[in-house]
Design a binder for these strands. Sequence first.
DNA 1: TTAGCGCTTGAATCCTCGA
DNA 2: ATCGAGGATTCAAGCGCTA
Lengths: 290, 290
Amino acid sequence: MNKKSEITILLGDCAEQLRRIPDNSVDLIVTSPPYADQRKTTYGGVRADKYVEWFAPIAAELKRVLKPSGTFILNIKEKVIAGERSTYVMELILEMRQQGWLWTEEFIWHKKNSFPGKWSNRFRDSWERLLQFNKERKFAMYQQAVMVPVGDWAKSRLKNLSETDKVRDNAKNGSGFGKNVSNWQGRDMVYPTNVLHLATECNNKNHSAAFPRELPEWFIKLFTREGDTILDPFMGSGTTVFAASEMGRNAIGIEIVPDYFEMVKSQIATQPNNSTRKNDRTTTSQLCRV
Amino acid sequence: MNKKSEITILLGDCAEQLRRIPDNSVDLIVTSPPYADQRKTTYGGVRADKYVEWFAPIAAELKRVLKPSGTFILNIKEKVIAGERSTYVMELILEMRQQGWLWTEEFIWHKKNSFPGKWSNRFRDSWERLLQFNKERKFAMYQQAVMVPVGDWAKSRLKNLSETDKVRDNAKNGSGFGKNVSNWQGRDMVYPTNVLHLATECNNKNHSAAFPRELPEWFIKLFTREGDTILDPFMGSGTTVFAASEMGRNAIGIEIVPDYFEMVKSQIATQPNNSTRKNDRTTTSQLCRV
DNA sequence: TTAGCGCTTGAATCCTCGA
DNA sequence: ATCGAGGATTCAAGCGCTA
């Protein structure tokens, strides 16, 4: 069913491991880095006032490995410190533009089920930023792949969710929408907007899912074709790389936490559907190409 | 039904007219200034690269007139220039923090009906920023005033989403977000989130309303009580001041375009419901206190 | 009373053309 | 070159009118 897909996972510090990746070789980067002072237990935490300083060299490497026609999607949200929203995300955008990145767009992930809580001076935070950066003004974008039925964006997301196989088949011939369209005959299709209204992942695995699978899936459909390469420099539990693989794309994941790395590694090994390929360069335990 | 409400409107340049307003006298500022390079016909337009420079002195005056317990809500969205989102909004936030403003929160206005269009490199822009600034960490906030009934959506499964969307659509009577609260007495109420899902008003006959009336209404309920004072330094067609007045609040509006000013002035005169009061200080045609 | 169908209208963005 | 004006594209909501 799947086109041949190759998953490469790298264990180690993101900035270092990125050096293994050739220039201009990645079509899409989708990632959700650790937020400032978040996930201290797993990542050690990055102080809010050091965040730009920490991320800037990584952003520079990402720019190097991305193809000129490629896109970088950065999922991030500033936390509240001393009653204020921190400004490190804005400072990061300004810094990345200094590096030569183009800040093309800011998508909003509107979370349907936001984290519960009650504070006297603010409401629940129900959205996150999805920043789109590019190297060039002209980049690859396949808008037809994410079209939705008229007037009901949410419903279409559900359909895609429950019928992933069909979606995968559709992407193959590039002619449009194959089987799914049959459900929507008589209804016009329209392009979506820059607001993604999705639920958060509420599966009860013990690891933190950075974002719901639909999120990387949507951007993978929008910005890549089969055979393209997707990179997630903060792989975590592997949401992005597995989504990419099952959509017939090649995937590269980098993860610094051994537990996550091993978990993804073993999950790759047990996946029956993947057409896998051994690679000669698998010479160290840090490089696992399946 | 309404408490006694006083509307004061000032004709002239915003930065100048603000000097007439005493220190620490306003409970809430809700405004939507002209965006960069927009509305040139009525406002002359402000260049994107001069936007911060233009707005900074206004922000300083707004800080002066706002009570320590008050809140400033700024509706704004950066435009696309040469394929990129402009950065002047982020630079403005950083500048305002330099002035001593606290950037407490960023609400999202998720527009149901965004402007149509089709481009090869981006989708329709369907959201705007609602930036909340404060002078102090402790500020007045009446969260109960904007509580919404628990819909089935809160505990529903995904398949119910289309129905709930319909239910949530009837935000028409202005009594709140969503439905008339009185219909829901006895049901559980919950707090909203920081994403406001509203339609733009595109059916005004003569003039464009900056934003739908529900928007200022919601913030007026959230941040003020009856008898408080709301300021809109870019009054436009008066959406905010009329909403404030009908909610039993005092309102101050500043407008530089004479046509808008006169329109609001005459509309105030013909409104039967307002308990109005003449003021001695109405000595020039530029100051109209009703 | 509700439902359904046209018509109208936008805080948009890109591209082309002319001064 | 640069800049401004104008055309083409596009879709959800709301209004007003019939059955």
